[in-house]
Design a protein around this nucleic acid. Structure first.
Lengths: 345, 345
DNA sequence: CTGTTAGCGCATTCAG
DNA sequence: CTGAATGCGCTAACAG
């Protein structure tokens, strides 16, 4: 509705041709005098170039499409923060679509974005299907997947197996022999399978007396809380939540039953959310840097856009965060109840 | 790069004119036979209409610009979820920009979006300045502000004063007389001033023996945690965190010092984050439904877009969530230490 | 109901 | 260095 002043108006006011104005706008050659005239005309008219007309010509939108599984999670927030942080300075903006954890909606969203003329697509995928692969090839625009792994498409992912392994080894070193892995559906390859398998490998390797039971929960506190009873019945020395949220729900359950953590049972998680540090006992966890992941993803996309597909460093570092929720079974003493160690820093 | 097949190609293949194809695409009149021909031609060519060309004509982008103060917060996630939930079914998509809590960047972002041709702008503002007002008037596109209040622009906001008041009254009823309000900078009008003033009003009204001290913190756990020492020195019977995060940080501090909540001191917050239910004691709080807020904001915007500026119901309901972190000073008994009441539901 | 004719606003040849 | 001319792909009158 607004957009009345066009390049033509500016040209007339400045007493030059439209092309001259266009050149002024696009770093073309233009004499100093006219340069000034045009500058002033633009200022006077309050001219703003029409986005669509420009894009129609240049075939470049400076728009990156992002498909997210859900919005209401800290993880996703961090990720977006990272992405934005590198995209924005480059003049790119993001269009956001939410797949609601559905593969179908995910594909649909990608379709929409592609149709919309975005320059590239970033998908925090819930699962890479054959169709995903097909599209990635068919469409000529760069597509980058996060969260899941697949050899046939470009992807960037936390090493869930390594994270699980690391935790497994740690708990083994702390003398634990019987763990319950409170995990999510196996349809989530990364979290549901790799993380778990990695854990089992780390926890069991090199010994025969280790045991890992599995209990399935959802991704949220509540569903974990509701499964806690079943977990407790298995009487492990440690509960491994596939995500920090799961562990938090379990911690709450134990608290309500006055079961002391870590004295009676240990609990660990994955994710490294800040809240893990404020609950008590503070949660020992493997921390992922989602913001960094977002930044790397965005950088990679930028590279692809500039044609240089040389692999940048795509390693996603993991940090082991040892806090208060694990008991060392190999030491004689039992940690004091209300641990007074500040862990907020 | 891709986009080779245009409406023209389809027209040729179907043996009709471009306009006919265009009509087919836009619900114009077209005979059944040609309809079928065109349908097939589109399918064969895999035609997709060019977004930019279309927008250039129609002057409608179906894009809503959203400016957010930050991304890494649960609040914002919920809000976005709500917005998306109503925008998406209507065929609108969102472009996201982050202001990083800076007024300047906020204005800048709005400018970019407007230039980009979005149909409307939604701003979760950090503070509405004169410049904001000016632009809202100058640009003809609908702009809706969230989070802050201003008589001269359209806005949608939680009633922070009411929320604060509600909490104040509750604590008064529980027999508390000395509170410390752990709040944020007053440059945040809504949270820094209204919420606090509302609280003070509710807490003090109708009596002379009430006292409220103020301690300033940031928005995050850690800065609250770091101020906790100072708060404790004031020796109140209850600490009122301006947000749940603040309260969580304080709760952690008390835990580390083995100060029993709520037996020795009570703690409350605002926001109603889920984590408030998993910590112990579970946090008593005034809950805001950010997702609902997002939905209302989006609906309102849609109304504006369709010209009917009749006020829809813009009340943002508050919910008082009474959990475990407040001691009733008027009753004789002291609540048991490890409360076994399930509060997760 | 359908084809023809015009632009939307801009970038980009191509001659000057 | 600059202006005139051309068309990106699509929609919207306009006459059939």
């Amino acid at each position: 509705m607004e957009q009345k002043v066009t390049i033509k108006d500016v040209a007339e006011l400045a007493g030059v041709s439209k092309s001259t104005v266009s050149r002024y706008l696009n770093n073309g050659y233009i004499s100093v005098e006219k340069q000034e005239k045009v500058r002033k005309a633009i200022e006077d008219t309050g001219f703003q170039s029409n986005f669509f007309a420009k894009r129609l010509k240049t075939r470049e939108s400076k728009l990156i499409g992002i498909v997210l599984p859900r919005m209401d999670s800290v993880t996703v927030g961090k990720l977006l923060a990272g992405i934005t942080r590198v995209l924005e300075p480059e003049g790119y903006q993001s269009i956001l679509l939410v797949s609601q954890l559905s593969e179908e909606k995910e594909l649909e969203s990608m379709q929409k974005l592609q149709q919309q003329g975005v320059d590239a697509i970033l998908v925090d995928s819930v699962g890479i299907t054959a169709e995903h692969v097909r599209r990635a090839q068919e469409w000529s625009l760069p597509i980058l997947y996060l969260g899941q792994q697949n050899p046939d498409v470009r992807c960037l992912k936390i090493d869930d197996a390594a994270a699980g392994h690391r935790m497994g080894v740690y708990l083994k070193q702390m003398g634990h022999k019987h763990a319950v892995f409170a995990g999510v559906t196996e349809s989530d390859e990364a979290v549901g399978i790799e993380r778990k398998e990695g854990f089992i490998a780390g926890f069991c390797e090199g010994r025969d007396d280790a045991r890992v039971d599995f209990v399935e929960t959802g991704f949220d506190f509540l569903s974990a809380y509701n499964q806690a009873e079943e977990i407790r019945k298995l009487a492990p020395t440690v509960v491994v939540g596939a995500t920090d949220n799961i562990s938090l729900g379990i911690l709450r359950y134990f608290h309500e039953r006055s079961i002391k953590v870590p004295e009676e049972i240990s609990v660990v998680g994955f994710g490294g959310y800040e809240v893990g540090a404020v609950v008590y006992p503070a949660l020992t966890t493997v921390s992922f840097d989602y913001e960094l992941m977002g930044m790397k993803a965005a950088s990679y996309l930028l590279h692809l856009l500039h044609q240089d597909d040389n692999e940048t460093n795509l390693d996603m570092p993991l940090t082991f965060v040892e806090r208060e929720s694990v008991r060392n079974l190999l030491e004689d003493y039992v940690q004091g109840e209300a641990v007074a160690m500040p862990v907020m820093a």
